[in-house]
Design a protein around this nucleic acid. Structure first.
Lengths: 198, 198, 198, 198
DNA sequence: ACCACCGGGACAACCCGTTCCT
DNA sequence: AGGAACGGGTTGTCCCGGTGGT
């Protein structure tokens, strides 16, 4: 029983170490040995918990996605007006930039690998489509409320998601180049200017 | 003399094959042997033309950047009004999506590797900053013209670039998910709605 | 006491599973994990019952040898005439081919490993020499009886054992190639033709 | 040219080293690294010449088989009377025991692996069946000549092959236990006693 | 100058038999 | 008897230089 607890903890140590190594070196370059050393476990322990490097990666991915999902939903639930909700999400996003800190490159890693590996692709694409649908729904709701202009919700959702994705990529590429959390807020503001009913 | 010509062609064959292999498998996974086979040359020939795998990659990168650069500048030069110029760039972008076709994943590859390798980073980041400056300048010009609202040009430029980058990433991830060329036009329209002087 | 019984049964389940795995995959390729899974026990249980993989293998070997030993001795005891006894052994051998069924490859595994591992060699060689001595004795007895020609008993014994061994190997290699039980009878018949007093 | 010669020699060095290592330690236990060290080449060189460990093994097998084949055919061609030819082969066999020296265990290795790997099996079984057919033919010829008794050639061939195989196995197991070359001659003599026309 | 064969080693992921603690 | 952990060892592959022919 105490065994199981210890196992769980080891598992988490590996997960954390992997997150760091993947973010720093990239999925392909980071080696199992490196991850194990960072986690302070042996390779045997690693393969006791994970079937393969890819399985570990997938698990990391799903961690991220579920966290993101709950964040977005709570932001929506708490604000009655849709523009306010979107601004709230932007604020949430700022935290993402700060919290994810060194972990931000993982996004690029995920997206990149999704293009080369069908299993990762499936795990990435389905929640991603979900997000797009989520924003489309939010925007449609805003139009119904009369707080947003009558644009095509799908298209607008794409724009929103693109903005977020693009900022993440820039944030990874050039972390010192700007305050990306701030940029997110500002960009959303501009976008809302284009979307909101005057 | 004919030698030189042949050498040049071999070089290009390698470059093309590499583009394809990197796009399909990713930089780390694609092997020199694979590229050589796709190009129909021997490894000896490869290392005669390129110092290393990374050098090849950098050359590919610079190819892309110079092409992109000229595209943007011509789009700007031909349209007097700034909003029209931006729309013209969006049209250009549509072509990028169609032309780059299978080569689109290379972007992700570049951005991803830039985060892990300082040499690639330098080659990537400087033109990227240039683009941002370029758009900021265009937008400032638009504000001076009175065709755009008085927003912060730097911020707006970030938004524009983010939009483009985000659409590319989505286009790589989910090529069938939407008509991304179309989405680019529509997104720019929405953004301009938020930027343009009424 | 029920504990002891359960332990004994677990032990046998492991032994049986190991026999199957070794026969199918070979000693080196078959893994402890595989055997444990086939036996439905944990690795902890395995190492509770056996000190090592090799110890398990040795135990399997000795199982076989003791069974074979009793078979041969009873065949001899029941037939007064030596040629008849040999023929009776051939009949016994037929059963071996049928019974051992999928287990036949274990022989090859034993012999093969005996050449590389001194402990297994000792466990294999001593009973084997015993068999040779046994047959030599039987043949000497036949000569004394006047039912066999005056050949060198040692040499003849070697021929007999070789025949048996060779048929087993062929039976493993090419199970569908012939009816090896039948072949054993026929071969012994031919050999006896060469040995028997006219 | 000189290149090719060097490559061929390296290849042979690897083959010889592998033969030794496989004979000493067994196929599974012998490692590529070990073989490379024994051959004095790097792993890069190894995998330049052989696609895999198994490919190397198969090549070793075919070497052996072709050598054996020619030996048997020449022995047959030189002796007009079938019994004499068989005795000549026995003599040839003596040489095999002496020449193959430390390489004898390879037989067991081949036979053993053939049972677990279909590719090796096919490479082993077809020449083996050929041998059986060859002996059956020889014996049928002997019967036609009137130098052998009218036995079933197929069965007799099985007995002959079994004898040979069995002696090899014994020779591997217990090299010091007897003079196996001598034993081969003696056994063939006994067998011929049973086969030959009086 | 260009290319092809050959070779070098480091290192990848994965898995193994085994031990320790409960 | 159970399951977590260990760490060394496996095959295979990679990127790259050297050497010599065209």
């Amino acid at each position: 029983m105490a065994q199981q607890h210890r196992g769980e903890e080891t598992r988490n140590r590996i997960l954390d170490a992997a997150q760091e190594c993947f973010a720093r070196d990239g999925y392909d370059v980071a080696g199992i040995a490196e991850i194990c050393q960072a986690a302070g476990v042996s390779k045997g322990a690693f393969y006791h918990h994970f079937a393969s490097k890819q399985a570990l990666f997938l698990e990391l991915l799903q961690r991220w996605l579920s966290a993101l999902d709950t964040q977005l939903r709570t932001a929506l639930a708490q604000e009655p007006s849709v523009p306010d909700a979107l601004r709230a999400m932007a604020v949430t996003g700022r935290q993402v930039f700060q919290v994810a800190d060194g972990r931000l490159p993982l996004f690029l890693e995920f997206w990149n690998k999704a293009g080369h590996d069908s299993e990762i692709w499936q795990a990435t694409i389905s929640p991603y489509r979900q997000y797009r649908g989520f924003f489309a729904q939010v925007i449609a709701q805003g139009i119904a409320q009369g707080t947003l202009r009558p644009v095509d919700p799908e298209t607008a959702a794409m724009a929103v998601v693109s903005l977020a994705v693009g900022l993440i990529v820039q944030g990874v590429l050039d972390p010192e180049g700007a305050d990306w959390g701030e940029a997110l807020s500002a960009s959303v503001t501009i976008l809302l200017e284009g979307l909101a009913q005057e």
